[in-house]
């Protein structure tokens, strides 16, 4: 039963972080792709660099923010799943934004003028571009999810690996390995992959239903 609880915490935190990140990052990535503004290249380079943002650095930063003496200490989010969600949100955002940017850029440049000349307004034309990019967008969100479900640094520093509360699959693996329980660690690793596989199968089934 403890195992199910661990899987549940992992899924809940990572799915929440990915969803929140997608809600902000898909429109942001799209906006960066279709608008021209000074410094656009710099923004794209920074986004791509943030792909490699070390999870422990994010963990440390958020720890600082949420700790008692930190600026957001009064929210009492340290060592809670909500705090972990915040950390993972920071990790997923640049990944989803940058991949949304790439997916939007990859859409045929005739889509927008075609929609416009057929009478679409600006929003409708934008939605058509997103619709044409939908495979790329789903890949972006899946990549964001992969980034957060597999990370351990932020989860352990912000969540504290509290049994039955903030312990996730990855933090459990870290704990078991440090105890010398390599076998349990490996089994947990396989479980993590199985969870990720299920999520991906679900997404694929969703895509195949709408060609």
């Amino acid at each position: 039963m403890e195992l199910l609880g661990i899987i549940w915490v992992s899924l809940r935190v990572s799915l929440a972080a990915t969803t929140l990140a997608a809600l902000a990052s898909v429109p942001l990535g799209f906006w960066i792709a279709v608008r021209e503004f000074p410094g656009k290249r710099v923004v794209v380079v920074i986004l791509n660099t943030l792909f490699s943002l070390p999870t422990v650095v994010v963990g440390l930063l958020v720890y600082g923010l949420l700790s008692h003496s930190g600026p957001l200490g009064s929210l009492k989010l340290l060592y809670t799943p909500a705090g972990m969600t915040l950390g993972q949100w920071i990790l997923a955002t640049p990944v989803i934004t940058a991949l949304t940017y790439a997916a939007t850029k990859g859409v045929d440049e005739r889509v927008r003028p075609t929609a416009l000349t057929l009478g679409a307004d600006g929003w409708q034309a934008g939605l058509m571009v997103l619709r044409e990019a939908r495979y790329g967008l789903l890949a972006a969100v899946v990549a964001g999810f992969g980034r957060v479900i597999s990370e351990v640094g932020a989860a352990i520093m912000i969540g504290g690996n509290i049994r039955g509360y903030t312990r996730t699959i990855t933090t459990a693996i870290a704990l078991e390995t440090s105890k010398g329980e390599f076998q349990i660690g490996l089994i947990l690793g396989v479980i993590l992959l199985a969870v990720a596989l299920s999520v991906n199968l679900f997404v694929h089934a969703f895509l195949r239903a709408r060609p």
């Binding site: 929609a115 057929l118 009478g119 679409a120 307004d121």
Partner: peptide, 30 residues
């Protein structure tokens, strides 16, 4: 004004989906 003028591109782009979805596009957005 755009809804009174329609351009057919030299190498037209058809939206992913069916012929019906494409031809009905202008009616849908209106």
């Amino acid at each position: 004004l755009r809804r009174r003028i329609t351009l057919v591109h030299q190498t037209p782009f058809l939206f992913r989906g069916t012929v019906f979805q494409n031809v009905a596009f202008g009616l849908r957005v209106r």
